[in-house]
Amino acid sequence: MTTAREVMHRGCECLSINENLTTAARRMAEMDVGALPVCGEDGRLKGIITDRDIVVKAIAQGRNPSDCRAGELVGEGEVWYVDAGSDIESVLHQMAEHRIRRLPVLEENELVGIISQADLAAKLPDEMVGELVTAISSTSH
């Protein structure tokens, strides 16, 4: 059985809820990623912020990214994640059901990695990845 731990990208960094969007964008550029997990002052995962979030929810709304904090974009909604020991079917199900392209991986309530569609494409059979992409794309906004 393949687990989340086996397909996740390790070493992801958390962005603080108090960091501004300019900092978030710079870190994404430096790391060559399109999303960063956002953690509270307690170190717990609060959500994920994407480059698209920065553009659509801040810049397109006329907000100054230097004045807008990451915590303002992740809001208070439910945070989807998977346990590091979860089987890959659970990972695929969550991503498809919640129409998400990236899924944080937790172990004992600590962020240990993140799974993206690219991680899955590199490590799973094409038909499994194809079904996920179809599920996410056909129901996304």
Rank of each mutant, 00 (worst) to 15 (best):
T2G: 05
H9T: 11
H9F: 08
R10L: 13
R10I: 07
G11F: 13
C12Y: 10
C12D: 15
S16T: 09
I17D: 14
I17E: 11
L21V: 04
A25L: 14
R26E: 10
M28K: 06
M28E: 00
M28A: 05
D32A: 15
V33I: 09
V33W: 04
A35T: 00
A35R: 00
L36Q: 03
C39W: 05
E41I: 03
G43H: 08
G43A: 04
K46P: 00
G47E: 06
I48C: 04
T50K: 11
D53W: 03
D53M: 12
K57C: 05
A58Q: 05
A58G: 13
R63W: 02
N64E: 10
S66Q: 13
C68P: 04
R69V: 09
R69F: 06
G71K: 13
G75F: 13
E76K: 07
G77R: 15
G77Y: 12
E78A: 10
W80D: 02
W80R: 09
A84M: 11
G85T: 02
E89Y: 10
E89N: 07
V91A: 03
L92R: 06
M95G: 01
A96K: 02
H98C: 00
R101W: 15
R101T: 08
R102F: 06
R102D: 03
V105S: 01
E108S: 14
E108M: 12
E108R: 08
E108Q: 13
E110Y: 09
V112F: 14
G113Y: 00
G113K: 14
I114R: 01
S116W: 04
S116E: 04
S116D: 13
Q117C: 15
L124K: 14
E127N: 12
M128V: 11
G130H: 05
L132I: 03
T134E: 11
T134Q: 14
I136M: 05
I136L: 12
T139M: 08
T139Q: 15
H141I: 11
